[in-house]
Each structure stands twice: as C-alpha cells, then as structure tokens.
Design a protein around this nucleic acid. Structure first.
Length: 150
DNA sequence: GCCAACGTTGGC
DNA sequence: GCCAACGTTGGC
C-alpha cells in the first residue's frame, strides 16, 4: 500500500469539511506531475491531509483513497473554475480520485516540525526546493516518522 | 526546440 | 501583499 500527501487550502476545503461530507472527489488538479500521482493511487492507499496557504500550514488529518483515478468531471464543466477547453472528452487530460475521511490528528503536525525533521525524512517531496505540488508521494518510513510527530 | 512572458503556488 | 520558484504557453 502506498502513501500520499494532499494539500488543500482550508478556506476552500478543510479537514472538517472532509469529516462532514465523508467522501470527497479530489479533482481540480491541473498540474501533470500531480495528476500522474493521482493516477498512481490505489483504493486503500493512505493520505496525509495537509493544509496550505493559511496561518499554520501543516498536516491535520488522515484520509483514504476509496476510488481510483477517473476522468475529472470539472474539466468538461463550462461553469467550473477548472474547465479546460483543451481537454478531449475522448481522451480526458485530468483525473480525480475519491478520498474518505479517516481521522483528524490529535494535534496538527506543523510545517516547522516537518522541517525540523528534514534530516530524518530524507528525500521528501514536500520539502523539495520550491515544491508546489499539491499531490505528492510519501514513503513508508516518512509516513511512520511523520505520524510519530503527532 | 528555444526562450520570454505569463500565471500559479504557497510561505512569509 | 510580496516574491521566489517553476510550470505552461506560444511565437519564432
């Protein structure tokens, strides 16, 4: 089983929102590298829920992939912010997965705390120079280490 | 295929 | 709101 990290801006969609709805289609990703990560996800994979662009960025919860990648419907929706005229319905450019709420962390793992363990985390995509990816892989050792910080 | 312009991300 | 990083676009 693989592990991932998904970023979300709490103003847009928070861990509390995920708890309320239970399952959420994770779409609107418009970066090819992030999309490729979405496509690599399998049902059962575990996900760290990371809040970004907020006063205290960090990991705030855990989710689980409950549906593997399928064409992101927002790319064909003219009313969506994520509408993409260049995406061919016969060969959809963008993907979404469904994620389910698992739990909130007892306390958030701050970006500061994550950085403080950069050495032990090794090659971690979240800390890579200038990384802006909203979907990124987490290996088993990193997963264990991060949750030990909870 | 190069590269300048532009847009977006996300911490601060 | 600023700005560094960097992906994408489009002219050539």
């Amino acid at each position: 089983m693989a592990h991932w990290l998904l970023k979300s801006e709490p103003d847009e969609f928070s861990i509390d929102d995920l708890q309320r709805v239970g399952v959420e289609p994770w779409g609107g990703v418009r970066n090819y590298q992030a999309r490729n990560h979405l496509r690599a996800m399998k049902v059962g994979d575990e996900v760290l829920f990371y809040r970004s662009s907020c006063p205290q960025p960090g990991i705030v919860g855990i989710a689980r992939v409950v549906k593997a990648a399928y064409p992101d419907p927002t790319q064909f929706d003219p009313r969506s912010d994520y509408h993409d005229l260049k995406s061919d319905p016969a060969d959809p450019r963008w993907s979404a997965v469904d994620v389910a709420f698992v739990r909130k962390l007892a306390q958030p793992i701050s970006l500061d705390a994550i950085r403080g363990n950069a050495g032990k985390l090794g090659d971690f995509a979240l800390l890579a120079r200038g990384n802006r990816l909203s979907v990124l892989p987490v290996n088993a050792a990193q997963w264990r280490l991060l949750l030990a910080l909870e």
